[in-house]
């Protein structure tokens, strides 16, 4: 098996990536001045800017993709089971 596809190495890299993200977050917390102030976030608070405005619909859409495609993950939450024959 190719070393790049070794499940142990992939899992280990994921854990290290998570630890690095957390470490970066912890070390920087409270020291960065927000460059977009809370009162400047009116546009970002608009419902059309929500990354997942309708969870019931996105869960279904992701289920359709995952049943028809070989790829999976990094789409947000989706249910188990298949229904894919």
């Amino acid at each position: 098996m190719h070393i790049m596809r070794d499940p142990y190495i992939i899992r280990r890299r994921a854990v290290i990536a998570g630890a690095l993200l957390t470490a970066m977050a912890l070390s920087g917390c409270g020291h960065i001045e927000p460059w977009v102030k809370p009162y400047e976030r009116a546009a970002l608070a608009d419902p059309i800017m929500s990354m997942d405005p309708n969870p019931v619909s996105s869960a279904y859409t992701h289920h359709v993709y995952e049943a028809r495609e070989g790829a999976r993950g990094a789409l947000g939450g989706a249910g188990g089971g298949c229904g894919c024959n």
Partner: peptide, 27 residues
């Protein structure tokens, strides 16, 4: 047996732009 490990980062870039990155490993 299924396991999934996820990490995500959502970032406000400007007053009009938001970005997010996600990583998911499934075994």
């Amino acid at each position: 047996d299924r396991r999934s490990y996820r990490a995500g980062l959502s970032q406000i870039i400007t007053k009009s732009l938001i970005m997010s990155a996600g990583l998911e490993v499934i075994t």
